[in-house]
Design a binder for these strands. Structure first.
Lengths: 340, 340
DNA sequence: TTGTAGGCGTTATCAC
DNA sequence: GTGATAACGCCTACAA
């Protein structure tokens, strides 16, 4: 007995009005078109019957699904759950739901998911997939779909976006290391075809230059992915060079964990021999030994702000494109120590 | 220019057939009702125009949204991302998408999310919310909605479910500890109004009894939540009793981390003084110091199996209710050591 | 202020 | 095998 499902007509009948009138009474936007008395009669009838508008029929009519597509590389990356929650929570307050799609950093898969979402008539997209050049962007914009970027920005500032200020975050880390006496600071940079990888590497170079410090090429290594293994590999390479570095700035926390591994393997202690900093302050990273010094920002807020930016577009706001930079915060833990 | 959107009628026109015929040709289920020749003509026309069926219209007509509601306590719990991915991946192969709802363990919020999903006409539910007694279940079943449980089972086996064999997992841990010479084993149990908390506590008592070991009440503490802080509190209580325990079986990995903290505070070393085991083998738990001995199972598979169970129901399968117990695996790391 | 009528795009049920 | 027709539930010009 899958419940008869009460529809608008039933409400109208019970209230003794025409369905059209009931529709107007039920919709806050049009309620003022109806006499207060009938309106309350309709509302009462609806409540009594437990009426729930059929969103499918409504969507067919209004051509809005109240659904947004969210593309992320991988939900298993601990960075994303809080972001997604922020998104969903904020979207929910406006009656929207999120369709989550994982791309695994694979362009083909990304396109497929994108198309499936389009087929489902999502009203807009939130993209957190990080590859810098991406034809999807142009395509979505051309199709008139509202798009918001997360954790990356469009090179030409042509799209609304929310991201942490990566450059500033790295600068805070380098200042911290320098204040501890470190001079020979290495960089385990993230992939350079990814927005965050590039921005943080640039930030590193800028911060070092600002501190008047040299960065010989043998103190920089580029990871092919934000993974522990790549962090380990890059760090090992740098250590093998025998340049006597005393600190490592990793492109994110995962790479920093890889640095831990490499130091272990090389018989070096953190922070006694080498200090390490990460980026992101991802969940549980404070449980490591030693707890990692890193840059934090509100992941949840990235989600809520991105949702808000999209909702603004969805509501027809047509103002200038907003790009939000969230403030980074240096979290000093025990992976950094004064140079002795 | 939000693209004119090609519809069925356009395809029909181009193929020179009636929309109804085009519909039949396009739908694999009904294609055999149409001559092969016209079918291919329609298909060609559709391809040429880039036709995408409007799922909203289709849903209105067929009364199936190809959408399922997934209720979980909190996406930020690292256990869930892999489960959700398993779900989504499997559902996607059948053309379904998941709507994720976080309940935060709050019954009121759970009901709200449940209702919102119902309003969106989800075709079924996957519930991973853990509270044992839950009126939602009866309600959903009464409404004729397919429901599958994850990480818990219905007490009377009345609903399809996927879960790890908690009792067996705990038994493996206790056997492991006993084989290392431990006898005074404490239990930091999870909340008893939660399926996994209860099952693992029962498993603990059963395993201890089977090993012929006593469990005085002062060696058991019940956490009010699966949190680090509760694990710390419970462990501290047990330690304060001065009973000289040599091992702790925690209700899950978070509680085990709390045990680490409490041991630290008490000036005890793990595993030198006290061995600790967790449950779940959650992501990144192997990065702790010391790496945690725990019980693993495929989280991803929990998701895929649950999805499959639901799809079976959705496809009208009406066989007996299946309850799947995934095999647990003991992962021995460095938090357990031979009693010296 | 309220009723009428038509249509959103698709599919199910008839006829032919 | 194919075409015609109606209906899924709702919204919105337009008319009254």
């Amino acid at each position: 007995m899958p419940e008869p499902a009460v529809k608008l007509r039933d409400v109208a009948t019970l209230a003794g009005v025409h369905p059209a009138t009931a529709s107007r009474a039920l919709n806050p936007e049009t309620r003022l078109l109806v006499s207060e008395e009938t309106a309350s009669r309709v509302l009462a009838a609806a409540a009594k019957l437990g009426y729930r508008p059929n969103p499918v029929a409504r969507s067919l009519r209004t051509r809005r699904s109240h659904t947004v597509g969210v593309l992320i590389p991988d939900l298993n990356n601990p960075l994303f759950p809080p972001i997604v929650r922020g998104l969903e929570d904020r979207l929910a307050t406006a009656g929207y739901v999120a369709l989550i799609g994982n791309t695994d950093g694979d362009d083909a898969r990304e396109r497929k998911v994108f198309e499936q979402m389009r087929a489902r008539h999502v009203d807009g997209y939130v993209l957190a997939t990080a590859h810098l050049r991406n034809p999807l962007l142009a395509e979505a914009v051309r199709a008139g779909m509202p798009v918001v970027l997360m954790n990356r920005i469009a090179e030409d500032y042509s799209l609304p976006a929310v991201t942490v200020d990566n450059e500033r975050g790295v600068k805070m880390e380098i200042s911290h290391l320098v204040s501890l006496g470190h001079r020979k600071i290495a960089c385990v940079a993230g992939p350079q075809d990814v927005s965050t990888g590039l921005a943080r590497y640039r930030g590193f170079q800028a911060a070092m230059a600002a501190a008047g410090l040299e960065v010989p090429p043998n103190r920089v290594a580029f990871a092919r992915a934000f993974s522990i293994e790549e962090g380990r590999r890059c760090t090992s390479e740098i250590l093998a060079d025998g340049d006597g570095i005393t600190a490592i700035a990793a492109g994110n926390d995962m790479l920093a964990v890889g640095s831990y591994r490499a130091l272990d393997q090389a018989g070096l202690a953190c922070p006694a021999d080498v200090s390490v900093v990460g980026f992101n302050d991802m969940p549980f990273i404070d449980m490591l030994r030693p707890p990692l010094t890193t840059v934090a920002f509100s992941h949840y807020q990235v989600g809520t702000e991105a949702a808000q930016l999209l909702l603004d577009r969805l509501n027809g706001s047509t103002g200038p494109v907003k790009v939000l930079y969230l403030a980074p915060e240096l979290i000093v833990r025990s992976s950094t120590a004064r140079l002795s």
